[in-house]
């Protein structure tokens, strides 16, 4: 079981160049795309068994999506935030489903809203919207079309 300081030490020791602690924050890390899953495995082994949240923010002007992972520890209630930046051109991230089963639906929701593809996800489908919905509604460049009806497929 790791507390926040031990996590910082662990990150320093094992992921020195790939994971960068954000200044002036309480245990928030900027994580490289490739190190995400190894770091998550390490955290889970360290007692961070509770994946509270996965979500994304679209920074259109800067040209990337920022994925935010909230990982909590059941024993001491510590929360660690992992921030992963993905380019808007090729939004592909490794899925953390093998680490936490809870990631399944959370990643599906992110895929549904942002179109970020999670590699190795067992079932990457839309979850809140219906199959056949066009576009990714929470992207900043999504054009709302009030006069267009995006229905479910027509029954014959």
């Amino acid at each position: 079981m790791l507390n926040k300081q031990e996590v910082a030490a662990m990150v320093q020791q094992k992921f020195r160049l790939m994971v960068e602690p954000l200044p002036d924050t309480d245990c928030e890390y900027k994580v490289d795309l490739m190190t995400l899953v190894p770091l998550c495995r390490e955290l889970k082994a360290g007692g961070y068994a509770f994946l509270a949240d996965i979500t994304a923010v679209d920074y259109l002007e800067q040209g990337y999506f920022r994925l935010l992972y909230q990982v909590c520890n059941y024993q001491n209630g510590d929360t660690i935030t992992l921030k992963v930046d993905v380019s808007r051109e090729e939004p592909v991230v490794e899925s953390v489903c093998p680490v936490w089963a809870a990631a399944n639906w959370l990643e599906r929701e992110v895929y549904d809203m942002f179109g970020i593809v999670f590699k190795n996800h067992p079932r990457l489908e839309r979850i809140l919207l219906w199959e056949g919905f066009e576009g990714w509604p929470l992207r900043k460049d999504y054009v709302h079309q009030p006069n267009k009806y995006q229905g479910r497929r027509q029954l014959d």
Binding site: A52, D53, T55, A56, V57, D58, Y59, Q70, A102, W105, L106, E109, L138
Partner: peptide, 12 residues
């Protein structure tokens, strides 16, 4: 806000 997201407990 640029983005608001809720972790909705029933969903999880």
């Amino acid at each position: 806000p640029l983005r608001v997201h809720f972790r909705r407990p029933s969903f999880d």
